[in-house]
Computed example of a mutant assay.
Amino acid sequence: MKKYRYLIGLFAFLFVISIQAQGNYHKGVLHLKKGKSQEVYIEIDFEFPQRFQQGITYMEPKDFEKYKSTGKMKGKMKQKMEPKHFEGFSLDDGREFRTVWYSDLTGKAIKMIPKRMTLEQVADGSIKMYKLYSRTTGKINQELADQIFENRENLVDYIQNNFQLLILKDKKNPTNVMHINLLNYIGDNARVKDNYTNNHYGLRDQFTERQKMGRYVNKEYEASFLKMINDYNEEAAMNSASDSR
């Protein structure tokens, strides 16, 4: 009797694990080279952000449906692709990810070669912005290590609220917003500049000592920064449209 209870419990556990794993696959469109695209289900697991930032794991719709109905992963149902082979991907929930070259100079290394990474794009236009989530393997900071080993149930919340926010304008590669001269990006728009100075966007409220000394921002900082950047981009788009008439 105990044996049957054990087996039932094991099957129930494996079923729950399978359902959770299926939930990490999101329907979307993979943007390939030369304008080609492909409908796929892409794995987005914030316990391991490096898995979708440094290369993606995906399934074609027919394989995902089989996986969903059987709970079993067979053969080559799950495929992998490096960022050098695609431009980015769009998820049905509205999130956009783009492949960019980024050199993370915020660590101890004096110089690092830019690497292709597929990052979530949160602003598009004259100024583009991306989010870089911390990897959870290899060299990680002590605070993240504490989350992984001592407070893992809150790991995803921590990762989604402690990330690098990158900005790109008139350059090849984006830069961490904590290490820029902001006026080099919004200074050519007098209205947005004045709004920033008068704290219209609430961004100045986010300049805490921890933010000034670090490289990570939180969702509140992102929201204020994006409010300013979206305002800048909207006016830039209107001016561009007016000039083209």
Score class of each variant (00 low, 15 high):
Tyr133Asp: 03
Gly138His: 02
Phe163Cys: 07
Arg152Val: 14
Phe163Pro: 02
Leu155Trp: 03
Arg152Lys: 11
Ile148Cys: 03
Arg135Leu: 14
Lys139Ser: 14
Ala145Glu: 12
Asn161Ala: 08
Gln160Ala: 07
Asn154Gln: 06
Leu165Gly: 05
Thr136Met: 04
Thr137Asn: 15
Ile159Gly: 04
Asn161Tyr: 02
Glu143Tyr: 07
Tyr133Glu: 00
Gln160Leu: 12
Gln160Glu: 07
Asp157Glu: 13
Glu143Asn: 15
Thr137Ser: 06
Thr136Phe: 04
Glu150Ala: 10
Ile140Leu: 01
Glu153Gly: 14
Asp146Thr: 13
Asp146Trp: 15
Glu153Thr: 13
Thr137Tyr: 06
Phe163Lys: 01
Leu132Arg: 04
Arg152Tyr: 13
Asn151Ser: 09
Leu166Phe: 06
Lys139Trp: 13
Ile159Tyr: 04
Leu132Asn: 02
Phe163Gln: 08
Leu166Met: 08
Asn141Arg: 12
Asp146Asn: 15
Lys139Arg: 13
Leu132Phe: 03
Gln164Pro: 11
Ala145Met: 12
Lys131Phe: 05
Asn141Met: 05
Leu144Ile: 02
Leu166Arg: 09
Gln164Arg: 12
Phe163Asp: 00
Leu166Asn: 07
Asn162Val: 10
Asn154Val: 01
Arg135Pro: 15
Leu144Asn: 00
Gly138Asp: 05
Asn151Ala: 08
Ser134His: 09
Arg135Thr: 15
Ile148Arg: 03
Val156Glu: 00
Leu144Trp: 00
Asp157Gly: 01
Arg135Asn: 13
Arg152Phe: 14
Phe149Pro: 09
Asn161Glu: 00
